[in-house]
């Protein structure tokens, strides 16, 4: 039960994606006061960027970081940069091996929430402004970003259960989701048989894993969205992003709201127009509501 938002600037460059998304998510914070998360895409980093959720107490933190260090050694990943902030540990590593095996092992033994050369997923309990206060999301510049505000219903309030979710095994892919998948367990068992692991009971994680599986089979993002609409039962609107694309999919019943605005400079998508309007205070925006059962992607 949530609110979602996304923004993409059509011209490459360092746009204020952090500030824009904070403002959009603040606009729909009433839809989800428990936690807030951002998936931000900036310039390509030389090192592979990983972000983990770690305990906030000193002993727990030290142990988690030590454990991550051991895992990095095991996979021949060389630590180049590191930062511990809020409930997260953000590192840059030189890694040239099999990403799927590497991240699978990492995920089994640590709370890995973001992987990529472009992507950074920042999420924590609290509001958009709370998260910004700790992680300085407002300073992040780039081309596009998606974000989420969450009201935890069936699963617990924990930073790792917040959105966005990254697509297991695939760097730089993230999703945010508003809705409820009713065939969650059935879909989950199907994906587990295909070797995927689940780290939360959050149905949104399944959307990320599903898309990852489709992409692994060589499908385009567009066709993955198309099949998702038919395969997933329930009510949903979700956004997905890659280093060069953002896209949405909406269920057949249109039970979860979503509006979008496209102009010469940008694409802005949100659960409610009030979020998009935050980018244009005092003006009216020409937003449209996508039809039920539709999907679309945009590329840089």
């Amino acid at each position: 039960m949530c609110g979602i938002a996304g923004v993409m600037y059509k011209q490459k460059g360092a746009h204020e994606i952090g500030k824009s998304l904070i403002s959009m998510l603040d606009g729909c914070q009433h839809r989800g006061p428990d936690s807030t998360g951002f998936a931000l895409y900036g310039d390509k980093h030389e090192q592979l960027q990983l972000r983990f959720i770690i305990p906030t107490d000193e002993a727990g933190k030290a142990e988690a970081i030590k454990n991550i260090g051991t895992l990095l050694e095991k996979h021949d990943a060389k630590l180049v940069t590191e930062e511990s902030i809020g409930c997260s540990y953000h590192i840059g590593v030189d890694f040239g091996g099999d990403l799927l095996a590497f991240t699978k092992d990492m995920e089994e033994h640590a709370k890995l929430v973001s992987v990529g050369h472009y992507l950074d997923i920042i999420k924590d309990d609290g509001t958009a402004h709370d998260v910004d206060d700790i992680y300085h999301v407002g300073n992040v510049k780039g081309t596009h970003a998606i974000g989420h505000v969450r009201l935890a219903t069936e699963s617990a309030v924990r930073p790792e259960a917040a959105h966005p979710f990254w697509a297991t095994g695939f760097e730089d892919i993230a999703i945010v989701h508003n809705g409820q998948l009713t065939n969650y367990w059935k879909m989950r068992r199907r994906l587990e048989r295909r070797g995927f692991a689940f780290h939360t009971d959050n149905d949104s994680e399944l959307v990320a894993v599903y898309l990852a599986d489709k992409l692994a089979q060589g499908n385009s993002l567009e066709s993955a969205l198309e099949t998702a609409i038919d395969d997933m039962d329930g009510t949903f609107s979700f956004l997905v992003s890659t280093p060069t694309e953002i896209g949405y999919a909406k269920d057949h019943l249109a039970a979860k709201p979503m509006v979008l605005l496209e102009n010469d400079d940008m694409i802005a998508i949100a659960s409610e127009e009030v979020s998009i309007n935050r980018l244009f205070p005092g003006q009216s925006v020409n937003s449209t509501e996508p039809a039920p059962g539709t999907f679309r992607t945009w590329s840089l």
């Binding site: 039960m1 609110g3 009433h30 009201l151 409820q180 979860k256």
Partner: peptide, 12 residues
Amino acid sequence: VLGADDLVIKMD
């Protein structure tokens, strides 16, 4: 009211 999120706005 199709979810807890819409419910908040209805309550308001």
